[in-house]
Computed example of a mutant assay.
Amino acid sequence: MWISREIWQSRLRWNNMWEKQQGQICPEVLYEEGKDGVTILGCKSVDGILILPDEICGRAVTSVKAYAFSSWQAGKDSRIWRNPQNWKEEGVHPVFGEEVREVWLPASVSHLGRYAFYRCKNLKKLTLSDRLQEVGGGVFTGCAPEKIEIYHWEGEKNCLKSIVDEVRFSIDATLVYDTKEVQGRARVLFPEHYEEAVENTPARLLFTRHHGSGGYYRQCFYDRTLDYGKYDLAFFHAKAEEERKTTVKLAVNRLRFPFRLGEEAKKMYTVFVKEKFEQGIQMMLERADIDGIRFLIREIQPGEEALAAAVRLAGDYRLPEAAGYLLEEKRKQTKGSRLQERFSL
């Protein structure tokens, strides 16, 4: 489907978080032109972080060719675009396969070709928009992206269902909504899952055994839209089948970014994180996420013993800012307890 330059530029104005700095965009892009827009064939850069331009020569980039990031595909019909603010000859080379680590797709890409990231085994993060509703078959064969970030300007539909169906490993997805009807941010975790064929030899039967709760979470979609109510109900399975680190991360994500989070689900997650407060703090310390620590203290309101344990953990991780904040919260709580005792007397 053709999209005008004015339409996609208006989308970018709706959400300035998408804005790409010209100096960050790939120095050189291999492309071809079609009637509906520009197709990316590959790119050159100095490292594995690939930020692709939203337009080339005044035309919106609408598709990525099959195998685009798995091999270099220069041909007789291909053209070269060079970034006037970031092009340099030294160190610039074709980036594909194992070298690819992060990819930020153009805003108007509506087609991602088959096996686009074939054997990009070090791909960790992919950023895209809701313009992309489906991904080609085998797109993530030979790779396992850990983070997906999707920006919504038209509604709540996206290609996340296609992605998590392609990848059986754990995926941490951030969904940013900035439409005329809906604004907000969600962060949702899809745990790992896999299926195993098991033979019952005496009965001559073959049945499928499912491992991990990720299969339940991958069923929480309807018409390319994530059903957050159904997603929260799957937490029952996660608690039974996942490691504690995974369930704590899942619960904290939903509390911290409570898009379409119902009251009952909020209570469920809050009780769970309060019980596993130390693991929650440890997760934030591993990320050096001071804002996340502040959120947990504010949301969970832990007792003195839990705060004391958190202070010790911050010391172990050698994070003075976190330790200082936790010590101050402990001091406030201790002072409050003493005042309460004084009034009781």
Rank of each mutant, 00 (worst) to 15 (best):
R254G: 02
E149G: 00
K147H: 08
E192V: 03
L160R: 05
I3V: 14
Y115D: 10
E32Q: 07
E196M: 08
D36R: 12
D291S: 10
N200E: 15
R338P: 00
P302R: 04
F235E: 01
G75H: 13
I49D: 05
S4K: 06
Y231N: 05
V109R: 03
V103A: 08
R114C: 13
V109N: 04
E19D: 06
Q183D: 04
L105N: 02
I290Y: 15
E6P: 02
E6D: 15
E196V: 07
R342G: 06
E241S: 15
S129G: 11
P202R: 04
G91D: 14
A144W: 04
R187W: 05
G142A: 10
I290T: 07
E305D: 15
N253W: 03
R119P: 01
R11E: 10
D165P: 01
I40Q: 05
E98C: 15
G34C: 07
A66D: 10
A68Y: 00
S162E: 04
E304N: 12
R294I: 04
E28K: 10
D232S: 12
W14N: 12
E199A: 15
R204K: 15
L175G: 02
M283K: 07
Y231E: 06
I293M: 03
L285S: 04
E278C: 02
R185G: 01
E32S: 08
L285C: 13
Y325R: 05
K266T: 09
G37K: 01
D316F: 03
M284Y: 00
N15D: 07
V182I: 13
E329T: 02
Y177W: 10
Q282T: 15
Q24D: 09
F259A: 06
K20G: 01
S110W: 07
L327E: 08
V100M: 07
H237A: 14
S110K: 09
E55I: 10
G212K: 00
R5C: 05
W18T: 03
W87L: 14
D178G: 00
I171P: 00
T62S: 12
D289S: 10
E275S: 13
Q183S: 07
T225F: 06
G212E: 01
G303V: 05
G91P: 06
K332N: 10
G37P: 03
T127P: 00
H210V: 10
E263H: 09
C26E: 03
A203H: 11
D54A: 06
Y269V: 05
Y317I: 09
G97Y: 00
D47L: 08
E241L: 14
I49A: 03
L327P: 00
E6M: 12
M17H: 07
T225S: 07
V38H: 02
S45H: 12
T225N: 10
E166A: 12
E275K: 15
K245E: 15
V103R: 06
S170H: 02
G48E: 07
Q133V: 06
I7P: 01
Q279H: 09
